[in-house]
Amino acid sequence: MSTTSGNMAGTAGSGTIGARVGRLTAWVILALIIFISLFPFYWALRTGLTFNRALLTGDQSILPPDLTWLNFKRVLGLASDAEMVQATGFENSASFDYLLALRNSMIIATVITIGQVFFSAMAAYAFSRLRFKGRDQLFFLYLTGLMVPPIFALIPNLILMKNLGWLNSFQGVIAPFFLMTPFAVFFLRQFFLGINRSLEEAAIIDGAGHFTVFRRVILPIAAPQMVTLAVLTYVTAWNEFLWPLVVAPQEENVQPLTVALNAFTTQVPGTQPDWSGLMAGTLLAALPVLVIFIAFGRRLVDSIQFSGIK
């Protein structure tokens, strides 16, 4: 389980001038790509910190031309009427319960992630480790699930939720993503395929059952990929919009941040998009994911480096 490739960065090709130039070029390109990735976020922050009226003057200064925290305040429902007028021009009470929506998003994304990653891992184990009749056909069938336009499943799933009495409930929002997604199964299977078999073979020869092998051997070895998938699943669940909108249109105790934020931005009167409020809201909505991402990011990086057991 040793880190075999981690120390390559400094050594390879450092001998020739050409290689050095190459590395320098690579660094420049990487820096440029990072800048392109990050700049829009900075611009979103700058926009969120600026009054709407200042935005439309076309001022491109790198710092907020008309700095204010008001947009964040009003998204959080902390702005007074006078401040609302100052920010939007309207004595508007548009706001949403950020903490409630945050709680809902966390419940939804957490439950979906736990269920989806675990159950998909079980399936991936079967598809990568077990041999049974029709396995590859079944796997390809799962794959075709990727190709079904989500819009296609929307209505039947909605009817199902209605018949189960799960409209406007957490069950309804969570159910379609709880047991699997074709992506999750596909993802884990591809990585499980790369795991060396010798350990589990040893375990099975020692008399362990498949569930034990799955739990004690595969899951720990595949932890980095599981964490990666969990992060991907969490973010996807966090950003889901259309499904919670249609399945829980009338229950604020269930609606996630995306839906609440959207309602907030459409409540603001006027014709111009409320860029400031929107960007402030978006950043606030993305913040929890960011925190989780940073917390797990370290783990992601550390664990992803060991390249299986060779």
């Binding site: 159950f119 998909s120 079980m122 399936a123 184990y125 079967a126 077990l130 079944l138 069938l141 799962y142 075709t144 699930g145 079904v148 296609f152 499943a153 209505i155 039947p156 799933n157 199902l160 159910a175 379609p176 709880f178 047991l179 699997m180 074709p182 199964v185 498949h210 569930f211 799955f214």
Partner: peptide
């Protein structure tokens, strides 16, 4: 048994709608 949960999910939320 390994496939059961995912098969239920696949059947109900992907295959039947399809």
């Amino acid at each position: 048994w390994f496939l059961l949960p995912s098969m239920v999910g696949f059947l109900v939320f992907f295959l039947l709608p399809t």
